[in-house]
Computed example of a mutant assay.
Amino acid sequence: MKRLPFLLPSDPEAPFPPGERALNEPDGLLAVGGDLSPARLLNAYRSGVFPWPSEGYPLLWWCPDPRTVFHTDAVRLSSKFRRGLRRSAWTVRADTAFEAVIAACAAAPRPGQDGTWIVPAMIEAYTRMHRLGHAHSIEVFDGEALVGGIYGIAIGRMFYGESMFSAVSGGSKVALAALARRLHGWGWPLLDAQVENPHLLSLGARSLPRARFLAQAAELAAAPGFAPGAWTGRFGELAVAELADPLPPGLELPAP
């Protein structure tokens, strides 16, 4: 078996090995060790790498092939679901309930999965990243009740999605569609979804060969984006009914 690089906790700025060196089995396992410091996490995402802890092992870092992504103008909602949105009073905001979103994602049941990778150390690390303005949550509200959400990391003009949840049916779909709508309007074309599952594919996710993903993500992460900070004002409050109509092909929305 190929020997995996071991990352030292004392050197969070050390470069990750190239993603192409990741194992084929298990798919994408690239390195072990290190820590979840902000410097390490930013370094990882810029390299197309993400942490995915597994109980009983040192911290594991992944770069799978292929990579699952959403093009931000191509999230797919069914016609029936869109009709329901026209009657919905739900609203979507950003960065007003990050800790509630990540806690709900950690507690969400996953078919075929025992436990969660969003362990307390991950919650602490990404909450720290949120306070530093690098991690963001998109929150769906029914009145003041949180009914769905998604969170991830923004670097340059690239958004790396981490997890989403629904407390009420459709909550995660709305969060994803609202995030994609805003990202598209800001000129951010790609949303990383890491690894495929049937739910993501049903919403329009696509697979990119790892080499193509790494090249595109590196270019977008290096592009001028927003300064670190909360997205609450920038995102605004989006009425879910606005998501009932798909974007016309080629439409570029103005930034709010």
Rank of each mutant, 00 (worst) to 15 (best):
A211H: 12
A180N: 05
Q194K: 04
S202Q: 04
R210T: 08
A180P: 13
A178R: 11
Q194D: 02
L191N: 07
Q216K: 08
L208W: 13
P198Q: 11
A215W: 05
A178G: 08
L208I: 08
L200V: 02
L203K: 05
Q216G: 03
A193P: 00
R212L: 13
A178P: 14
Q216F: 01
V195I: 15
F213A: 07
H199W: 11
Q216L: 14
V195M: 14
G204W: 06
P198T: 10
S202W: 04
L191Q: 06
G187R: 11
A193M: 01
L203F: 07
L208K: 06
F213H: 15
P209F: 09
L203C: 02
E196L: 14
R212A: 12
R212Q: 14
R206N: 00
L208M: 15
R182D: 15
G185L: 12
E196Y: 09
A205M: 00
H199P: 00
Q194I: 00
R182K: 11
A215Y: 06
L191D: 05
G187V: 09
A211G: 13
L208H: 03
W186H: 08
H184K: 06
L183H: 06
N197V: 01
G204C: 05
L179R: 03
N197Y: 03
S207V: 10
R212D: 14
L203G: 01
L201K: 07
L190W: 06
L200P: 01
Q216E: 14
R206Q: 12
